[in-house]
Design a protein around this nucleic acid. Structure first.
Lengths: 112, 112
DNA sequence: GTCCATATGTAGCGGTCCTACTTATGAACT
DNA sequence: AGTTCATAAGTAGGACCGCTACATATGGAC
């Protein structure tokens, strides 16, 4: 998976990874890896700055804790984050439909 | 449609627009607009440089002509372009499956 | 005679992800 | 005791790529 394709879609993925409950950055990374069967293996240099952006935007809220001697920054979806996530999901469906239409001539495989 | 999302996918769209036959830049633009029901309306500053890139990469071949007093640069898919297109289509399906998996927990709506 | 659709093009901006590197702890293995 | 690896977080700088804004030119409509 060429990761440059990800441009613009990363935020949605991170928000989605936090939907089921609070997670720290490293755990978000692993959650994405697992939910995609290892196909999406993002480097820390992508994850952490992106989480900082989302926090600055008020979509997630972070708090420090120490577990087993290691400091962790744990993130939770804010109310705004939850709304943003559903917006991003809708955006993704629209986007995928448009690209599929242009590429295949049909909105989805086995639809319509 | 926020167009930044397009990053990395544009080449595939342009190649697809040329699959059914030769077209000049302006026509490619219109073909994409029509094949997506007007949802994908790319500016000329996006189309032309991208076509130049594809030509430089040997995926399309361009030639000048004059029709009705207006000069046109008409592009055709090369053999390499045809192969690239099918690769890009496969990439798109993989990419869409991965993002859908991470976003929705399922590869496609109403699949599997 | 002006305006719009057609037709092509470039320069530079901005956003965003990646590469490469740094720091730190705990556990395992030798 | 020392090395190595997984865990955990971070930054700086670069590269890529589509967009905005602008420039140029013709033909037809009004």
């Amino acid at each position: 998976m060429k990761a440059e394709l990800l441009k613009g879609h990363l935020d949605a993925l991170l928000l989605a990874a936090l939907e089921s409950g609070p997670r720290h950055g490293y755990a978000v990374m692993e959650a994405l890896r697992e939910s995609t069967g290892g196909q999406l293996d993002l480097p820390t240099g992508t994850i952490y700055p992106a989480l900082h952006r989302l926090e600055a935007a008020g979509l997630i809220a972070g708090s420090w804790s120490v577990v087993g001697g290691r400091r962790r920054r744990c993130y939770v979806l804010t109310e705004a984050g939850r709304k943003a996530l559903s917006g991003r999901r809708a955006d993704w469906r629209d986007f995928a439909a448009v690209i599929s239409a242009a590429l295949e001539g049909a909105p989805w495989p086995s639809t319509a």
